[in-house]
Amino acid sequence: MEPRPRSFYLLSAFFALFLLFLYGPTITIAILSFQGPGGGLTFPMQGTSLHWFRDLFEQQAVGDIWGSFRRSFVLGLMVMVTTVILSVMGGLAFRKKFKGSSILFYLIITSLVIPSILISLGVGLIFSQSGLEVHWSTSGFGAQLTWTLPFGLLIMFAVFNRFDKSYEEAARDLGATSWQTLRYVVLPIISPSLIGVALFGFTLSYDEFARTLLTSGSYNTLPLEIFGMTTNVTTPVLYALGTLTTVFSLLMIGLFLCLALWSTRRKARAGSDAGKGML
Protein backbone atom coordinates (compact mmCIF):
# COMPACT_ATOMS: atom_id res chain seq x y z
CA MET A 1 0.00 0.00 0.00
CA GLU A 2 1.26 3.43 -0.80
CA PRO A 3 1.97 5.61 2.25
CA ARG A 4 -0.65 8.07 3.42
CA PRO A 5 -0.18 11.62 2.16
CA ARG A 6 0.10 14.40 4.72
CA SER A 7 -3.36 15.66 3.75
CA PHE A 8 -4.79 12.41 5.14
CA TYR A 9 -3.75 13.35 8.67
CA LEU A 10 -5.09 16.88 8.35
CA LEU A 11 -8.40 15.62 7.02
CA SER A 12 -8.62 12.95 9.72
CA ALA A 13 -8.20 15.63 12.35
CA PHE A 14 -10.89 17.70 10.64
CA PHE A 15 -13.21 14.71 10.56
CA ALA A 16 -12.58 14.00 14.26
CA LEU A 17 -13.43 17.62 15.08
CA PHE A 18 -16.59 17.32 13.01
CA LEU A 19 -17.68 14.25 14.97
CA LEU A 20 -16.94 16.10 18.20
CA PHE A 21 -19.09 18.98 16.94
CA LEU A 22 -21.90 16.56 16.03
CA TYR A 23 -21.91 14.52 19.22
CA GLY A 24 -20.26 16.79 21.82
CA PRO A 25 -23.37 18.77 22.84
CA THR A 26 -25.52 15.64 23.14
CA ILE A 27 -22.89 13.95 25.28
CA THR A 28 -22.68 17.08 27.43
CA ILE A 29 -26.38 17.03 28.28
CA ALA A 30 -26.18 13.29 28.88
CA ILE A 31 -23.52 13.96 31.53
CA LEU A 32 -25.41 16.92 32.98
CA SER A 33 -28.60 14.90 33.35
CA PHE A 34 -26.85 13.07 36.21
CA GLN A 35 -26.45 16.44 37.98
CA GLY A 36 -26.96 16.38 41.76
CA PRO A 37 -30.28 17.66 43.19
CA GLY A 38 -28.84 21.14 43.78
CA GLY A 39 -27.20 21.48 40.36
CA GLY A 40 -28.22 23.73 37.49
CA LEU A 41 -28.28 23.71 33.70
CA THR A 42 -24.51 24.18 33.31
CA PHE A 43 -21.32 22.82 34.79
CA PRO A 44 -19.99 22.44 37.45
CA MET A 45 -21.69 19.25 38.54
CA GLN A 46 -23.02 19.46 42.10
CA GLY A 47 -22.43 15.79 42.77
CA THR A 48 -24.01 13.01 40.75
CA SER A 49 -27.46 11.51 41.19
CA LEU A 50 -30.45 10.03 39.45
CA HIS A 51 -32.59 12.77 40.97
CA TRP A 52 -33.75 14.25 37.63
CA PHE A 53 -34.59 10.90 36.13
CA ARG A 54 -36.70 10.14 39.22
CA ASP A 55 -38.47 13.46 38.66
CA LEU A 56 -39.52 12.29 35.21
CA PHE A 57 -41.44 9.41 36.73
CA GLU A 58 -43.46 11.65 39.03
CA GLN A 59 -46.49 12.65 37.05
CA GLN A 60 -47.19 16.07 38.51
CA ALA A 61 -43.61 17.33 38.23
CA VAL A 62 -43.52 17.63 34.46
CA GLY A 63 -46.69 17.35 32.38
CA ASP A 64 -47.85 14.25 30.58
CA ILE A 65 -44.54 12.84 29.33
CA TRP A 66 -45.45 9.17 29.31
CA GLY A 67 -48.74 9.81 27.55
CA SER A 68 -46.98 11.83 24.88
CA PHE A 69 -44.28 9.19 24.54
CA ARG A 70 -46.95 6.53 24.00
CA ARG A 71 -48.65 8.68 21.35
CA SER A 72 -45.37 9.40 19.56
CA PHE A 73 -44.46 5.72 19.60
CA VAL A 74 -47.81 4.58 18.19
CA LEU A 75 -47.81 7.37 15.62
CA GLY A 76 -44.24 6.46 14.63
CA LEU A 77 -45.29 2.85 14.00
CA MET A 78 -48.36 3.96 12.01
CA VAL A 79 -46.28 6.29 9.86
CA MET A 80 -43.58 3.64 9.44
CA VAL A 81 -45.91 0.92 8.16
CA THR A 82 -47.77 3.32 5.87
CA THR A 83 -44.54 4.79 4.50
CA VAL A 84 -43.07 1.38 3.68
CA ILE A 85 -46.21 0.11 1.92
CA LEU A 86 -46.94 3.28 -0.03
CA SER A 87 -43.29 3.78 -1.01
CA VAL A 88 -42.99 0.26 -2.41
CA MET A 89 -46.24 0.68 -4.35
CA GLY A 90 -45.11 4.08 -5.58
CA GLY A 91 -41.66 2.77 -6.52
CA LEU A 92 -43.20 -0.12 -8.48
CA ALA A 93 -45.60 2.29 -10.16
CA PHE A 94 -42.75 4.50 -11.32
CA ARG A 95 -41.02 1.54 -12.95
CA LYS A 96 -43.97 1.32 -15.32
CA LYS A 97 -43.05 4.80 -16.57
CA PHE A 98 -46.75 5.57 -16.70
CA LYS A 99 -48.12 8.70 -18.32
CA GLY A 100 -48.32 11.57 -15.90
CA SER A 101 -45.73 10.10 -13.55
CA SER A 102 -43.78 13.34 -13.69
CA ILE A 103 -46.69 15.13 -11.98
CA LEU A 104 -46.35 12.74 -9.07
CA PHE A 105 -42.58 13.20 -9.09
CA TYR A 106 -42.85 16.97 -8.81
CA LEU A 107 -45.46 16.62 -6.06
CA ILE A 108 -42.97 14.48 -4.14
CA ILE A 109 -40.25 17.10 -4.55
CA THR A 110 -42.66 19.84 -3.47
CA SER A 111 -43.60 17.80 -0.43
CA LEU A 112 -39.91 17.58 0.45
CA VAL A 113 -39.00 21.24 0.03
CA ILE A 114 -42.17 22.96 1.23
CA PRO A 115 -41.64 24.76 4.55
CA SER A 116 -43.11 22.51 7.22
CA ILE A 117 -45.12 25.28 8.79
CA LEU A 118 -47.21 25.56 5.60
CA ILE A 119 -48.32 21.94 5.95
CA SER A 120 -49.13 22.56 9.59
CA LEU A 121 -51.07 25.73 8.82
CA GLY A 122 -52.86 24.36 5.75
CA VAL A 123 -53.92 21.06 7.27
CA GLY A 124 -54.97 22.84 10.45
CA LEU A 125 -57.09 25.30 8.45
CA ILE A 126 -58.77 22.56 6.39
CA PHE A 127 -59.72 20.61 9.49
CA SER A 128 -60.95 23.63 11.43
CA GLN A 129 -62.91 25.11 8.52
CA SER A 130 -64.63 21.83 7.69
CA GLY A 131 -65.55 21.27 11.31
CA LEU A 132 -63.30 18.24 11.80
CA GLU A 133 -61.28 17.96 14.94
CA VAL A 134 -57.51 17.88 14.58
CA HIS A 135 -56.04 14.80 16.21
CA TRP A 136 -52.55 13.34 16.15
CA SER A 137 -53.80 10.08 14.62
CA THR A 138 -55.64 11.74 11.72
CA SER A 139 -54.41 15.20 10.76
CA GLY A 140 -51.07 14.71 12.52
CA PHE A 141 -50.61 11.34 10.83
CA GLY A 142 -51.27 12.75 7.35
CA ALA A 143 -49.10 15.81 7.90
CA GLN A 144 -46.16 13.60 8.92
CA LEU A 145 -46.61 11.39 5.87
CA THR A 146 -45.88 14.41 3.66
CA TRP A 147 -42.39 14.41 5.23
CA THR A 148 -41.65 10.66 5.38
CA LEU A 149 -43.09 9.60 1.99
CA PRO A 150 -40.63 11.66 -0.10
CA PHE A 151 -37.70 10.04 1.69
CA GLY A 152 -39.23 6.59 1.31
CA LEU A 153 -39.99 7.10 -2.36
CA LEU A 154 -36.57 8.58 -3.17
CA ILE A 155 -34.94 5.54 -1.55
CA MET A 156 -37.16 3.28 -3.67
CA PHE A 157 -36.17 5.21 -6.82
CA ALA A 158 -32.51 4.68 -5.97
CA VAL A 159 -33.14 0.98 -5.31
CA PHE A 160 -35.08 0.31 -8.49
CA ASN A 161 -32.61 2.27 -10.63
CA ARG A 162 -30.00 -0.30 -9.60
CA PHE A 163 -32.34 -3.30 -9.82
CA ASP A 164 -31.29 -6.01 -12.25
CA LYS A 165 -34.35 -6.78 -14.36
CA SER A 166 -33.04 -10.16 -15.49
CA TYR A 167 -34.10 -11.68 -12.14
CA GLU A 168 -37.70 -10.86 -12.93
CA GLU A 169 -37.37 -12.06 -16.49
CA ALA A 170 -35.92 -15.34 -15.25
CA ALA A 171 -38.85 -15.74 -12.86
CA ARG A 172 -41.32 -15.00 -15.61
CA ASP A 173 -39.63 -17.44 -17.98
CA LEU A 174 -40.00 -20.12 -15.33
CA GLY A 175 -43.72 -19.45 -15.33
CA ALA A 176 -44.15 -17.26 -12.25
CA THR A 177 -47.17 -14.99 -12.20
CA SER A 178 -46.54 -11.30 -11.67
CA TRP A 179 -47.66 -11.60 -8.05
CA GLN A 180 -45.29 -14.54 -7.48
CA THR A 181 -42.45 -12.59 -9.11
CA LEU A 182 -43.11 -9.69 -6.76
CA ARG A 183 -43.55 -11.81 -3.65
CA TYR A 184 -40.70 -14.31 -4.11
CA VAL A 185 -38.19 -12.41 -6.22
CA VAL A 186 -38.49 -8.61 -6.05
CA LEU A 187 -39.46 -8.11 -2.38
CA PRO A 188 -36.77 -10.44 -0.94
CA ILE A 189 -34.12 -8.70 -3.05
CA ILE A 190 -35.11 -5.21 -1.91
CA SER A 191 -35.86 -6.16 1.71
CA PRO A 192 -32.70 -4.55 3.24
CA SER A 193 -33.71 -1.22 1.64
CA LEU A 194 -37.23 -1.61 3.01
CA ILE A 195 -35.74 -1.74 6.49
CA GLY A 196 -34.00 1.54 5.62
CA VAL A 197 -37.32 3.06 4.57
CA ALA A 198 -38.86 1.85 7.83
CA LEU A 199 -36.04 3.49 9.78
CA PHE A 200 -36.71 6.82 8.07
CA GLY A 201 -40.47 6.45 8.54
CA PHE A 202 -40.28 5.75 12.24
CA THR A 203 -37.54 8.14 13.34
CA LEU A 204 -38.65 11.10 11.22
CA SER A 205 -42.16 10.75 12.60
CA TYR A 206 -40.99 10.21 16.17
CA ASP A 207 -38.98 13.44 16.10
CA GLU A 208 -41.20 15.56 13.88
CA PHE A 209 -42.07 18.93 15.32
CA ALA A 210 -43.13 21.58 12.80
CA ARG A 211 -45.61 19.50 10.81
CA THR A 212 -47.33 18.26 13.97
CA LEU A 213 -47.49 21.64 15.69
CA LEU A 214 -50.96 22.69 14.51
CA THR A 215 -52.21 19.26 13.53
CA SER A 216 -51.96 17.17 16.70
CA GLY A 217 -54.86 18.66 18.63
CA SER A 218 -55.09 18.72 22.39
CA TYR A 219 -52.90 15.68 22.96
CA ASN A 220 -49.23 16.47 22.44
CA THR A 221 -46.65 14.23 20.85
CA LEU A 222 -43.30 13.95 22.61
CA PRO A 223 -41.36 16.63 20.63
CA LEU A 224 -44.20 19.11 21.24
CA GLU A 225 -44.17 18.24 24.93
CA ILE A 226 -40.39 18.71 25.11
CA PHE A 227 -40.58 22.03 23.32
CA GLY A 228 -43.27 23.16 25.75
CA MET A 229 -40.92 22.28 28.58
CA THR A 230 -38.14 24.49 27.24
CA THR A 231 -40.19 27.59 28.01
CA ASN A 232 -41.05 26.76 31.62
CA VAL A 233 -38.66 24.10 32.91
CA THR A 234 -35.26 25.38 33.98
CA THR A 235 -33.89 22.32 35.74
CA PRO A 236 -31.80 19.42 34.43
CA VAL A 237 -35.01 17.37 34.24
CA LEU A 238 -35.08 18.67 30.67
CA TYR A 239 -31.70 17.06 30.02
CA ALA A 240 -32.82 13.83 31.66
CA LEU A 241 -35.77 13.66 29.27
CA GLY A 242 -33.57 14.60 26.32
CA THR A 243 -31.09 11.89 27.25
CA LEU A 244 -33.80 9.25 27.62
CA THR A 245 -35.45 9.93 24.26
CA THR A 246 -32.06 10.13 22.54
CA VAL A 247 -31.13 6.77 24.03
CA PHE A 248 -34.48 5.44 22.82
CA SER A 249 -33.82 6.81 19.31
CA LEU A 250 -30.34 5.26 19.30
CA LEU A 251 -31.78 1.89 20.36
CA MET A 252 -34.31 2.04 17.52
CA ILE A 253 -31.60 3.04 15.01
CA GLY A 254 -29.39 0.22 16.26
CA LEU A 255 -32.27 -2.24 15.96
CA PHE A 256 -33.01 -1.19 12.37
CA LEU A 257 -29.33 -1.28 11.38
CA CYS A 258 -28.93 -4.78 12.87
CA LEU A 259 -32.04 -5.92 11.01
CA ALA A 260 -30.68 -4.48 7.76
CA LEU A 261 -27.31 -6.17 8.31
CA TRP A 262 -28.98 -9.47 9.16
CA SER A 263 -31.21 -9.27 6.10
CA THR A 264 -28.26 -8.45 3.80
CA ARG A 265 -26.29 -11.42 5.20
CA ARG A 266 -29.26 -13.72 4.82
CA LYS A 267 -29.72 -12.54 1.26
CA ALA A 268 -26.05 -13.20 0.51
CA ARG A 269 -26.35 -16.73 1.92
CA ALA A 270 -29.62 -17.52 0.19
CA GLY A 271 -28.35 -16.12 -3.09
CA SER A 272 -25.43 -18.55 -3.27
CA ASP A 273 -27.47 -21.74 -3.61
CA ALA A 274 -27.91 -21.25 -7.34
CA GLY A 275 -27.93 -24.57 -9.13
CA LYS A 276 -28.03 -26.69 -5.99
CA GLY A 277 -31.52 -27.91 -6.73
CA MET A 278 -30.37 -29.19 -10.11
CA LEU A 279 -28.21 -31.99 -8.75
Binding site: G90, K97, I119, I126, G142, L149
Partner: peptide
Amino acid sequence: NNTFIGWLMALPIMAVLVFFLVLPIAMI
Protein backbone atom coordinates in the same frame (compact mmCIF):
# COMPACT_ATOMS: atom_id res chain seq x y z
CA ASN B 1 -52.39 -0.91 -19.53
CA ASN B 2 -49.12 0.27 -17.98
CA THR B 3 -50.55 3.71 -17.38
CA PHE B 4 -53.63 2.26 -15.76
CA ILE B 5 -51.72 -0.08 -13.44
CA GLY B 6 -49.16 2.63 -12.73
CA TRP B 7 -51.82 5.06 -11.59
CA LEU B 8 -53.57 2.35 -9.62
CA MET B 9 -50.41 1.59 -7.64
CA ALA B 10 -49.56 5.24 -7.22
CA LEU B 11 -53.12 6.00 -6.09
CA PRO B 12 -52.58 5.75 -2.31
CA ILE B 13 -49.51 8.00 -2.36
CA MET B 14 -51.33 10.40 -4.67
CA ALA B 15 -54.32 10.48 -2.32
CA VAL B 16 -52.12 11.35 0.66
CA LEU B 17 -50.35 14.09 -1.27
CA VAL B 18 -53.57 15.57 -2.63
CA PHE B 19 -55.24 15.67 0.72
CA PHE B 20 -52.29 16.73 2.88
CA LEU B 21 -50.21 18.75 0.42
CA VAL B 22 -52.21 20.10 -2.52
CA LEU B 23 -55.42 20.91 -0.66
CA PRO B 24 -53.59 22.58 2.25
CA ILE B 25 -51.68 24.78 -0.21
CA ALA B 26 -54.95 25.64 -1.97
CA MET B 27 -56.52 26.38 1.38
CA ILE B 28 -53.67 28.68 2.36
